[in-house]
Computed example of a mutant assay.
Amino acid sequence: MVFLTRRILLLTSLALFSGCERQDAPPLDQQLYVWQRQWTSDHDVALRDSRTDFSALRVLALQAFPQAGWSRARIDPALLKRDGRPLIAVIRLDGQLKSLDQDEVTTQIQQVISDWQALGLSLCGVEIDHDAGNARLPAYREFLQQLRARLPASLPLSITALPAWLDSRELPALLSTVDSSVLQVHAVSDPRRGLFDPVQARQWANAWSRITSKPFYLALPAYGVALLPGDGGAPIVESEVRLEREGKRQELLADPQQLSQLSAKLRADPPAHLAGLIWFRLPLANDRRAWSLTTLRAVVRGDALSSRLALKLSAQEGLYDIGISNEGNLDSAWPERVTLAVRGCEGADALAGYALQQGPDLLTFTRLHDGRIAAGGQRAMGWARCAHIDQGGSNVYP
């Protein structure tokens, strides 16, 4: 009887202890920014292929600029209705605006809400993207307080936030006015230092978690930019739209390997109140400065990343089309050099981006400038009219 009593007490203690053990943290939510001002048919495929990995869409809806005024993004409501994921309308108020006209901005936002609802879109929130300097945070807080009071109480309000705000005493009061915040940890310093620093991003996230008591997200980069020489010394940033400007472009690209490692660490040990990650931006098929969706999905899933470049030949009556394919899940730079073992070649040529050297038994394609092959994509390099090309004796040099 004593043994049975002790056994019951032991089992009860184990049950109580196990009930107090820390459970695995829920997986971090993964969302997407849809940041194109003009929607195209490419959005249909991109939205469809992103559905399984991203829970919500934060869609650029409206922008205000100092000289240009207000501009609506030309969304495709039919695609968004069919997609069915929660929608957050993002209102971009340029940081160079001298002040925020409370009534005008509120009226514009209310009109967006009304118009989207009339189109049958179910809004789940509004996000204000305003790069206010620290000196203007008190005025920004008052603006957000009044905006919150004039928006539907059922509609969550969030803001995009800057790491520089960590130095301001106004930050706790500012964050108290909204339901959540999105800490942008990319493209927030001198672009010559790069788009993103994973160590600094983690430090900022930890610091943010100690200040806010509300959910926050990290905005992470899945894109690149180019730097062009500026007139005053500071570089000009070229992003989605090509600028008609002379000068050598310095390409900067967020490193998928770095972001994959940071994502894994955040999933394993998230800072307090971190609700998820939001990736900038939804990649379209023709977006030359965004990761491919294949690479972005692999990073989000925590898959091992690799590029697998392979030579692709297609022949018809001795005329070979020569190309390279990327059979991995990681976007790759164009190969630096490709050599083909050949026999009996009458002629050959390279396409734009490569130069050709032709010998009696070897064709050598050499890269002239940088470019990328998307994961799952391919690129034509040239052609050759030969009696035979030995694919087994040919080589691709990354």
Results as ranks from 00 to 15, higher is better:
195 L>Y: 06
387 A>C: 02
94 D>K: 01
349 D>W: 08
190 D>C: 03
307 S>N: 01
97 L>W: 04
309 L>D: 01
164 A>D: 11
356 L>N: 05
92 R>H: 12
225 V>S: 00
266 L>W: 10
397 Y>A: 02
9 L>E: 14
91 I>F: 04
81 K>S: 13
82 R>Y: 09
222 A>K: 01
67 Q>P: 00
181 S>F: 05
10 L>Q: 13
31 Q>D: 08
61 A>K: 03
131 D>C: 00
391 Q>Y: 00
76 D>T: 12
315 A>G: 03
273 H>D: 11
386 C>K: 04
378 Q>N: 10
347 G>E: 14
19 G>Y: 01
318 G>K: 07
342 V>S: 04
61 A>C: 07
5 T>W: 13
20 C>K: 06
190 D>E: 14
214 K>V: 09
19 G>F: 12
262 L>W: 03
159 I>S: 00
122 S>P: 15
128 I>M: 05
97 L>A: 02
373 I>E: 02
95 G>T: 12
366 T>W: 00
185 V>C: 01
108 Q>K: 12
373 I>Y: 06
59 V>L: 05
363 L>A: 08
321 D>I: 01
342 V>N: 01
135 A>P: 04
128 I>W: 02
19 G>K: 03
82 R>N: 14
233 G>I: 08
183 L>K: 05
225 V>Y: 00
362 L>V: 06
375 A>T: 13
57 L>Y: 11
67 Q>V: 06
172 P>Y: 10
193 R>P: 01
128 I>G: 00
255 D>P: 09
95 G>Q: 10
60 L>N: 00
315 A>I: 07
253 L>V: 08
304 A>S: 13
218 L>D: 09
220 L>P: 01
